[in-house]
């Protein structure tokens, strides 16, 4: 992989963010709104729920981590969509950059885009609601890495869909995470789901990661086994996502859709 080319593609998106205040505002706005909304919901539940009564901030921490996953995926999709919207798609695919370098550039830039919104939002939660996601401890790093890999994987699958089906697949980009959220057991234990759905839910990394997050905050103990399980499942899906992306790319070359992809 050529780092200079990866940097070039990342630079394209950094220039875009730097040059547009509304874009920057958009990155900051949604995570902050989420913090406010879930902060008040969290406060209400901690005061009125027996399940959450001793653990201030479990819901808000879950909301922040879920938003991190959501932003990672959306960032990845958005950067790819920018190429389609700007009709730069052909220029990109005729330049001497490998598919693996495109994936690497989008993956690395998506974290930058995600953190622009998530860092301020997470810091705001501390004085406003007395909730710090850092109270999860060192396990937080592994949770974030696993969620990031899964977020990027969803981005990969959606962008593969964009290459395969064209810009009309855009709506799926926005809907993909809402579809998985109920099965991810972000705010509730997996036992809430009917037994047949648990099988599907357990095949997702989210269940294991959010279950352990709740365990850490409610019982003050850390078990790295579910985190490792979540991480490995994320990695497995990521490999699958890369495979699907390549498949979509080679299919698009056969169908000739790479040369006139645009709005």
């Amino acid at each position: 992989m050529n780092l200079s080319k990866i940097y070039a593609l990342s630079l394209r998106h950094i220039f875009l963010i730097k040059s547009s205040f509304p874009r920057l505002l958009d990155l900051l706005y949604w995570p902050t709104i989420q913090i406010f909304l879930w902060g008040f919901i969290s406060k209400f539940f901690t005061l009125n729920s027996t399940y959450y009564n001793n653990t201030v901030g479990v819901i808000l921490t879950a909301a922040i981590l879920y938003d991190f996953l959501f932003r990672s995926s959306i960032s990845y999709n958005m950067m790819f969509l920018e190429e389609i919207w700007s009709r730069n798609f052909t220029n990109l695919f005729i330049s001497p950059i490998k598919i693996s370098e495109i994936i690497a550039a989008l993956t690395l830039t998506a974290i930058f885009r995600t953190l622009i919104g998530m860092v301020p939002a997470s810091l705001i939660a501390i004085p406003l609601f007395g909730v710090s996601i850092f109270s999860v401890g060192p396990a937080l790093i592994f949770l974030l890495i696993s969620l990031y890999i899964f977020g990027v994987t969803l981005g990969l699958l959606v962008t593969a869909g964009l290459i395969r089906f064209g810009p009309s697949f855009e709506n799926i980009a926005w809907a993909s995470l809402f579809f998985l959220a109920p099965l991810g057991c972000i705010y509730y234990p997996v036992e809430i789901l009917p037994e047949w759905l648990r099988v599907i839910a357990n095949a997702l990394p989210l269940v294991h990661l959010f279950e352990e997050m709740r365990n850490i905050l409610m019982n003050n103990t850390v078990s790295y086994l579910p985190i490792m399980k979540g991480f490995l499942i994320s990695l497995l899906y990521f490999t699958f996502g890369v495979f699907i992306f390549y498949l979509a790319y080679f299919g698009a070359r056969v169908r000739g859709t790479l040369i006139n992809m645009g709005e």
């Binding site: 080319k5 394209r12 220039f15 040059s19 547009s20 700007s86 009709r87 730069n88 950059i97």
Partner: peptide, 19 residues
């Protein structure tokens, strides 16, 4: 086909020069 509209001419040329 076009170059990214929100980027300056120099930024666009720099990106493709690097690529």
């Amino acid at each position: 086909i076009e170059l990214p509209k929100k980027l300056t001419v120099r930024q666009n040329l720099e990106i493709f020069a690097r690529l």
